[in-house]
Amino acid sequence: MNKKAKAFRAALPYTLPVFAGYIVLGTAYGILLNSKGYSIIWAVLTSLFIYAGSMQFVSLSLLAAGFHPFYACIMTLTVNARHLFYGISMLSKFQGTGGKKPYLIFGLTDETFSILCSATPQNEIDKGWFMFFITLLDQIYWVSGSILGSILGSIIHFNTNGIDFVLTALFIVIFINQWKSATNHIPVLTGLGASILCRMIFGASDFIIPSMIAILFIVTVFQNKIESENTTCHLQ
């Protein structure tokens, strides 16, 4: 079996929770976009070229607010600011992935990031292709969901209420794995604690950027203490 096929087979199981989540959320996005009068072409194009789930949902509410390109840009910066952290976290991991690198960066969603961060393929698996296939499969699920939703429109109603919790469940499981693997729990507790505190202070819609600032502040202040113990993201 060649290098790519092996990497593909290793990548596939890791993406299954995302498959469930993205098909359902993608479908919901397609249905909503369709209800705004945008056909399947728009569902495909936005899911291909924006490929940021929460921002795509936000864009639907922006549609109702009138045509304000500058505002759309600011909203995108705000909603997607957390991706700066993902990029910084992947600087070393994406090294040496060559031509696949731009796509790895482009497709770095919350879910793909969380899998790349925690997945540990066996040694003989090519890391670059492994990460590439996880990213590609995830985007295929998302685009397929959008297409499905856009075809179904509002005609058929599944009682899938609550299935989007699959992504929350995925993050909780990854969180537990991180907790068990970390020798120093300050970073894990910082992320959780700062976010809870900022959610209480700033409310549900405005707490991510304050959380990021608080996290940066705390990990910077405690750099010496944290670095004295071994903390690294798994896949190396």
Partner: peptide, 18 residues
Amino acid sequence: YLGRVLPYTIIGMLVIYC
């Protein structure tokens, strides 16, 4: 250093985000 430590902080943030 941020690249090493941030992954451990962000997943907690994502859980709260959800």
